[in-house]
């Protein structure tokens, strides 16, 4: 098994946390992972992007040239990374922030209104977890309890009150694509 994912969104949309959770969970499942974040000037408001590679085998280059999956939280992110798609790629779009795209290669696209779903459950910041739930449901990567234990670990201390809403967001994301 090998999976190359590019995650991108507005700085502040939680792509870092999303990518780390997937990487951490898969690491615990015994997979090799590399997670390469953009760094430096990408602050709240700019495009933050992350390359995540998962494999049974040793991973060499952490930089992805062709992605198996794109998880895109807003339109500028999609426009920046659509060139990394190949015919059998999957595309996960936050449809709350990306209206229409031209699907030239006719690839599998999952349009998830992540921001709206997160808003409905009371915390717009949890849109990243909605995407996580959806992505994991489609790809069937990790069992939900493993994600939740990683999430609990990350949200220790000051951020503990946010655990429940994030958990709910993961579930709602998974639910949404089950009905897709």
């Amino acid at each position: 098994m090998s999976e190359k994912v590019i995650l991108a969104g507005l700085g502040g949309q939680g792509m870092m946390l999303l990518g780390r959770l997937i990487a951490q969970a898969l690491m615990l499942e015994g997979k090799n992972v590399t997670f390469y974040p953009s760094y430096g000037t990408e602050v709240r408001g700019g495009t933050a992007y992350y390359h995540l590679t998962v494999s049974e085998e040793e991973i060499f280059s952490p930089v992805i040239e062709e992605a198996d999956t794109l998880i895109m939280m807003n339109l500028p992110s999609y426009l920046k990374f659509k060139g990394f798609l190949k015919p059998d790629s999957m595309l996960f779009l936050n449809s709350s922030m990306i209206d229409k795209i031209e699907n030239e290669m006719n690839i599998d696209v999952y349009r998830i209104p992540a921001t709206k779903i997160a808003n409905n459950i009371g915390n717009v910041v949890a849109s990243n977890m909605v995407m996580l739930g959806a992505y994991n449901e489609v790809k069937n990567l990790v069992s939900i309890p493993v994600f939740l234990s990683c999430l609990k670990n990350v949200l220790k201390g000051r951020k503990e009150p946010f655990y429940e809403v994030n958990k709910l967001a993961i579930e709602r994301g998974a639910e949404f694509v089950r009905k897709y």
Partner: peptide
């Protein structure tokens, strides 16, 4: 280098 410093691995 920056890549090895910034990337996360187990």
């Amino acid at each position: 280098d920056a890549q090895l410093g910034q990337m996360m691995e187990p």
